[in-house]
């Protein structure tokens, strides 16, 4: 799932996400939230919020223990 805003695009591999929420906690832009849905492992996964800008700071990818976040330049 891709959510486009501002400078960068964040994608979360929702099926591999364990919902630890570290990315949500440390994202300065409030770009990520926990989904209401569950993935196949039974976790609520992180997902990007529409209409919120991503600065491309890469904090979410650096803190993610499961390498499930991808950040793309425009």
């Amino acid at each position: 799932m891709a959510q486009k805003t501002g400078k960068c695009t964040v994608m979360v591999k929702s099926e591999s996400c364990k919902g630890c929420s570290l990315c949500i906690e440390f994202c300065k832009s409030g770009k990520l939230v926990l989904s209401d849905k569950l993935n196949k492992m039974g976790y609520r996964y992180a997902e990007p919020v529409e209409d919120t800008a991503c600065t491309g700071c890469m904090i979410c990818t650096s803190i993610c223990p499961d390498l499930v976040i991808e950040v793309y330049d425009e």
């Binding site: 364990k18 630890c20 929420s21 976790y43 650096s62 803190i63 993610c64 223990p65 499961d66 390498l67």
Partner: peptide, 10 residues
């Protein structure tokens, strides 16, 4: 196989 939020993954 690590639990959610485990430091090992990082």
């Amino acid at each position: 196989h690590y639990c959610p939020g485990c430091g090992h993954g990082i």
